[in-house]
């Protein structure tokens, strides 16, 4: 559900031609990703930081710049011949190869880890931050 919302927002980011609509779609993506983090049972810090930093700070910066520069609808350019004959088939081939690789390798990680290592207790996040920052 939230995943579908995120993909919808990303598609809308591409299809909208006005940058402010793209920015609003990006907010949708970020908020639904924060919801996904909550549902995954990740640390609360991650979802909160995602909302505060991305949904708040970064997007305010984006919208401020869009307003400041009076960004309008982007003009369309014609599709070049090189792109039509060379680029599109190559991009399709690359997409097929990547999809095949994902399809073949899916199943390696299929069972979610039921057993949690005992590192996953309150305070482990802080401990991990300092272990990575200060490798003594």
């Amino acid at each position: 559900m939230l995943a579908a919302l995120a993909v919808l927002g990303a598609v809308s980011l591409i299809l909208q031609s006005h940058p402010i609509h793209s920015a609003l779609s990006l907010i949708l993506v970020m908020v639904s990703l924060a919801g996904l983090y909550l549902l995954m049972g990740a640390e609360l810090v991650i979802a909160a930081v995602q909302i505060i930093v991305y949904g708040g700070a970064v997007m305010v910066l984006f919208i401020f710049v869009i307003m400041l520069l009076n960004a309008g609808v982007e003009e369309r350019t014609n599709f070049s011949k090189l792109a039509a004959f060379g680029g599109v088939p190559l991009a399709l081939a690359l997409g097929c190869i990547i999809a095949a690789a994902i399809a073949r390798s899916s199943g390696h990680l299929a069972p979610p880890a039921v057993k949690r290592s005992d590192e996953f207790h309150p305070g482990a996040f802080d401990a991990a931050v300092f272990r990575i920052c200060l490798p003594v």
């Binding site: 590192e119 996953f120 482990a124 991990a128 931050v129 990575i132």
Partner: peptide, 8 residues
């Protein structure tokens, strides 16, 4: 993986 390194 049950580790919090990724979240860091």
């Amino acid at each position: 993986l049950g580790k919090s390194d990724g979240e860091v």
